Lab assay of single mutants.
Amino acid sequence: KTRWTREEDEKLKKLVEQNGTDDWKVIANYLPNRTDVQCQHRWQKVL
């Protein structure tokens, strides 16, 4: 388990703006080493 970088956080924010929060698998495709569940959790709990 690796810490999220600032770059990953920024990328996640942009991806959510573009794609919404309905399909985390699509978002995870753009973030290597991150699963859809990790992306969703990061968005809901941290950002």
Rank of each mutant, 00 (worst) to 15 (best):
Lys1Met: 01
Thr2Glu: 08
Thr2Trp: 07
Arg3Thr: 12
Arg3Lys: 13
Arg3Gly: 08
Arg3Trp: 15
Arg3Gln: 08
Trp4Ser: 02
Trp4Arg: 01
Trp4Pro: 00
Trp4Asn: 00
Thr5Pro: 01
Thr5Val: 03
Arg6Val: 11
Arg6His: 13
Arg6Lys: 13
Arg6Leu: 14
Arg6Ser: 15
Glu7Phe: 08
Glu7Pro: 05
Glu7Arg: 08
Glu8His: 03
Glu8Ser: 02
Glu8Met: 04
Asp9Gln: 03
Asp9Met: 02
Asp9Ser: 04
Asp9Lys: 03
Asp9Ala: 01
Glu10Cys: 13
Glu10Pro: 00
Glu10Arg: 10
Lys11Ile: 07
Lys11Gln: 04
Leu12Ser: 06
Lys13Thr: 06
Lys13His: 07
Lys13Ala: 12
Lys14Tyr: 07
Lys14Gln: 04
Lys14Gly: 11
Leu15Lys: 05
Leu15Ser: 10
Leu15His: 08
Val16Met: 03
Val16Tyr: 02
Val16Asp: 00
Val16Arg: 02
Val16Ser: 02
Glu17Leu: 13
Glu17Ala: 14
Glu17His: 12
Glu17Met: 05
Glu17Ser: 05
Glu17Val: 10
Glu17Lys: 09
Gln18Ser: 07
Gln18Ile: 14
Gln18Gly: 08
Gln18Thr: 15
Gln18Val: 11
Gln18Lys: 08
Gln18His: 10
Asn19Gln: 15
Asn19Pro: 02
Gly20Glu: 10
Gly20Gln: 09
Gly20Ile: 04
Gly20Cys: 03
Gly20Asp: 13
Gly20Val: 04
Gly20Ser: 10
Gly20Tyr: 02
Gly20Phe: 07
Thr21Glu: 06
Thr21Pro: 07
Asp22Trp: 05
Asp22Arg: 10
Asp22Met: 07
Asp22Val: 13
Asp22Ile: 05
Asp22Leu: 10
Asp22Cys: 06
Asp23Ser: 13
Asp23Met: 09
Trp24Ile: 00
Trp24Pro: 01
Trp24Gln: 01
Trp24Gly: 00
Trp24Ser: 01
Trp24Asp: 00
Lys25Asn: 12
Lys25Thr: 11
Lys25Phe: 08
Val26Ile: 11
Val26Pro: 05
Val26Thr: 12
Val26Cys: 12
Ile27Thr: 04
Ile27Leu: 05
Ala28Val: 03
Ala28Phe: 00
Ala28Tyr: 00
Ala28Met: 03
Ala28Ser: 14
Asn29Tyr: 15
Asn29Val: 10
Asn29Ile: 02
Tyr30Arg: 13
Tyr30Leu: 14
Tyr30Asp: 13
Tyr30Glu: 10
Tyr30Gly: 15
Leu31Pro: 00
Leu31Phe: 15
Leu31Ile: 09
Leu31Gln: 03
Leu31Gly: 00
Leu31Glu: 00
Pro32Leu: 07
Pro32Thr: 12
Pro32Ile: 07
Asn33Ile: 04
Arg34Tyr: 15
Thr35Ile: 06
Thr35Gly: 04
Asp36Arg: 05
Asp36Gly: 09
Asp36Glu: 09
Val37Asn: 11
Val37Trp: 11
Val37Gly: 09
Gln38Thr: 05
Gln38Met: 15
Gln38Glu: 13
Cys39Arg: 00
Cys39Ala: 08
Cys39Gln: 00
Cys39Val: 05
Gln40Val: 05
Gln40Arg: 11
Gln40Asn: 05
His41Val: 12
His41Asp: 08
His41Thr: 13
His41Asn: 15
His41Pro: 01
Arg42Trp: 03
Arg42Thr: 02
Arg42Phe: 01
Trp43Tyr: 13
Trp43Phe: 09
Gln44Val: 12
Gln44His: 07
Lys45Asn: 14
Lys45Arg: 11
Lys45Gly: 10
Lys45Leu: 09
Lys45Asp: 12
Val46Ala: 09
Val46Asn: 12
Val46Met: 10
Leu47Trp: 11
Leu47Glu: 06
Leu47Lys: 04
